[in-house]
Amino acid sequence: MAAKTKSRTRHYAMVIDTNRCVGCWTCAVACKEVNNEPLGYWWNRVLTTAPNQSTSAKPPASPNIDVPYGVYPNLELAYLPVACQQCNDAPCVKVCPVQATFRRDDGMVLIDYNRCIGCRYCMAACPYGVRVFNWGGHEYAPGGTVGYGKDYYVDGRLVFTPYRPKGIVEKCTFCVERVDVGEKPFCVESCPLGARVFGDLDDPDSEVSKLVNEGGAEQLQSDLGTDPNVYYLPVARRVPGES
């Protein structure tokens, strides 16, 4: 498979600055629109967390979003936008029995909609819970679909289609159809706070390279060894009373 793929010299990555995120869900809604996600689908979502927590570190304060952690007046609140982490060593790629999920050599993990058999093993294997399955066809919000709106192929493989086939798994594509023509993923474009940075890790002068190499950006659940290409800048906080 790798031999047939055209060599790409980039290595895409995203850095999300949790200092800037206010939990407005604009990225999640923008993602839903540009990718024509049917009702009940969220490729991208914003979790309510305490600052600097990995995704499975401590029990939630509440089942509801926007509820702070702690006891008044010592409350804390942060947000963690989570979509596909585009892992370099992706468990979903390893378990897919038919090589429908594959990693392009610029770091994008994509799904071949024409090959997926719908076994959902990838959903069992993903530690971030970012994959969605099409349980019953496509049902859209009134007003129809917007966004990219046409099929997109990578090396002859269908990796995006606006009207979703029933019975296959899908997820965030890093907006491959936008990135391939030099645009940024739509969540990066739409974030009102500029909390998301997208770029090429192989270019040492790019902003993502600097944030990853010098800015202290971290990966989610890095102990699992999945080596995601999505990084998070920790919340820098100063606690009163401490030096």
């Binding site: 979502r45 309510t48 995704t55 509440s62």
Partner: peptide
Amino acid sequence: PLVQYPPGNA
């Protein structure tokens, strides 16, 4: 839960 933060998974 894989992700122990609200709202969880879709």
